[in-house]
Structures are given as C-alpha cells and as structure tokens.
C-alpha cells in the first residue's frame, strides 16, 4: 500500500472519477491554473483541460447555483468552495436550493453534486477563516455530510460522493492536507454511514471526526499511560450517521467522550450525546462527556486560538473525569 498525503488522495479520487465518467467536472476559485489553494486540484487542469476544470469568479453562491443547474441537466459537478468559511456566503444555494429541490419537486430529479470545502482552524487565520460548521449542514435535511480524517478515507469517500446521486458536502480540513497515510492500491469505494474504529479499546469510546480523530488518537495514547484503554471511533459521514456503530461501541465500553472542533451548543456532538443517552441510558457507567470549541469567534493570537480550539489534552481531561 503506497503512502500518500491527504491532498494527493483527493487528487487521485477526482482524477479517477473524471477518467471514468465524462459528466464529472470541477469548478471553483483558483482550482485550475493555480492548482487549488491547498493543492487539492494540482495537475487536474493539465490532464483534463479547462472545460472540465473550471476556474470561476469569486462568487460562492453563483458557484453552487451553477452546480445545481448543471446537475439538474444531468452532469455531476464537483464545485470547490475555497474554504468552508465561504459556504456561509453560499448558504441559500446550498440549503434552500441544492438540499431541498429533490424533495420539494416530489423526487422528480436527482442532484448529484459534491461540494468540496476545507474547514477548520488552528493556523491563526482569525475569526472569519477558522470555521468548523459541519453541524449547520447536519441540522438541515437533504444534504449528505462527509468528513474524512485520513488519506484513505478521503479517497474512498470522495469517490463514493462523486458517484452518489445526492447532494454531498465533503468537508476537508486545512490542517490535514499534508498528513500522510496508507492508501490502498486497488479501487476502494467507502460506503456512507459506516463508522470506522481508528483504535480499538475497551474502557471508553471517543467519538471524533476530521482533525479531532488525530487529537483523539493522541489522547488515547496518553490515557493508555494512565491504564485506560480508549477506543477511537470515526463516524466519517455525519449524514448519514452510523448510529448502530456508535451504540455498539459505547454499549461495550460503557463510557463515551464526544470530541468535535466546532462550537458546543446545538452541535453534532450534542446530538450524539443526546441519542446515546436516549438509547443506552442503562448501559452507561457515566454521563457522556463533551469536548468542543469555546463559543467565541476564533481569535488570532496563537495562545488564545489554542485555548479556543479543543485538543488532545481537553479530551484526556474529559475522559479522566468520567473514567473513574
């Protein structure tokens, strides 16, 4: 199995799907000649040309809207939002149009759109460029939310997303692009709605996704030193969600920490905690613990940013509180 970086895995996934299906095309700001702000489309314009790798104006609502129209007509657009932060500008097209159209038209059409966008903070980009707002989209019906943490998951899930007949928000993480991992040589399509156990354990389940998976893995090592064997469970897709996978793990370990990079209130983490308690109340040995960002606009100053965003230490602290 070759080792590759997260962004390289994304490029491979797109290139393979574009070779396979002429109706797949990419559009976004600086994705072509420039190669993508995070290099995630590097080389694709050279291979596929400017018809299928389209540099766009800086117009996020327009980009998503054009993708909706192209999908209505049977193409498979893969628009890139330069970052998740700018999804906020395109929110009406994503939520009111892309996500609702199939339902409100009584299922008359499919919209096979994969919106790629990198989210996350941790590089001092300040309040407007550090969002982890996947919860907003999970809160809205009609859109799948896919959020891989490793190169292999990134590749396999992006291929599945592009082949999906439905609207997918594919959330990458700015700090994961250069991370490395083994990616299978053969073609792998990772199904939606299947959580992956990134580290098996017996004493406690940490549910985490995107970059927080890596924080959770660090935390698990630290906890191991304390004699606590933590399992790290990565749902990989937040919509659909593998509730059975989470319940199975937590029923076994009887303790759970949910760790996310986004803000705490009314979040995916809140939903997971609520459902675990609804479903497994009698199996739990402790309340579900939560780790999330402090609810302030992400500050610039390095020390403050580090305090605002959750990390492995926060997970360890939360775990120790419920592990006794």
């Amino acid at each position: 199995m070759p080792e590759m970086r997260y962004y390289e895995a994304l490029i491979e996934a797109m290139a393979e799907e574009m070779r396979r299906d002429e109706s797949v095309f990419l559009m976004g700001e600086d994705i072509g000649l420039f190669g993508g702000t995070f290099r995630a489309t590097e080389g694709l314009m050279a291979e596929f040309g400017s018809r299928r790798v389209r540099d766009t104006p800086i117009a996020e609502a327009g980009i998503v809207g054009l993708a909706v129209g192209a999908a209505m007509a049977g193409l498979r657009p893969v628009p890139e939002l330069m970052t998740m932060n700018f999804a906020i500008v395109a929110m009406d097209q994503i939520i009111n149009h892309a996500a609702k159209m199939r339902y409100m038209f009584g299922g008359q059409l499919n919209l096979p759109i994969t919106i790629r966008a990198p989210g996350g903070g941790g590089t001092q980009k300040g309040a407007q460029h550090s969002h982890s707002i996947e919860s907003w989209f999970v809160n809205s019906p009609g859109i799948r939310v896919v959020i891989p943490s490793t190169p292999a998951d990134a590749k396999g899930l992006l291929k599945t997303s592009i082949r999906s007949e439905d609207v997918v928000l594919f959330v990458e993480h700015e700090m994961l692009y250069s991370s490395k991992g083994q990616v299978p040589d053969e073609e792998v399509l990772i199904p939606f709605g299947r959580a992956d156990i990134k580290r098996p354990g017996t004493d406690l389940t940490i549910v985490a996704w995107s970059k927080m998976v890596h924080e959770a893995l660090h935390a698990a090592e630290a906890l191991a030193a304390e004699g606590i064997d933590a399992e790290v469970l990565d749902p990989r897709t937040l919509d659909p969600f593998d509730w059975d996978g989470v319940f199975e793990s937590v029923a076994r370990t009887r303790r759970c920490v949910v760790a996310e990079e986004g803000w705490r209130s009314v979040s995916v983490g809140a939903e997971i905690a609520a459902r675990i308690q609804e479903t497994l109340f009698h199996e739990l040995d402790a309340p579900v613990a939560r780790v999330a960002a402090v609810e302030v606009p992400t500050p610039y100053a390095r020390k403050l940013e580090q305090k605002a965003l959750p990390n492995a230490d926060d997970i360890v602290r939360a775990a120790l509180k419920i592990a006794v």
């Binding site: 327009g62 009406d92 008359q108």
Partner: peptide, 29 residues
C-alpha cells in the same frame, strides 16, 4: 414549487433571485 422535469421545466423557487445562477448552470450543461 411547480416543476415538470419531463417537460424540462425546472420550476419555481421561492427565493427571489435564487434561480438565476441555476439558470446559468443549466446553460453550462
């Protein structure tokens, strides 16, 4: 939200202006 996809009528949006980039997307196709 009337739509009749068999007649290539992609229907009504309730958001003023919302259909305009979608129209361009149809044109792109």
């Amino acid at each position: 939200h009337m739509a009749d996809v068999e007649r290539y009528f992609f229907g009504g949006t309730g958001i003023v202006g919302g259909s305009i980039p979608i129209a361009a997307g149809l044109g792109l196709a």
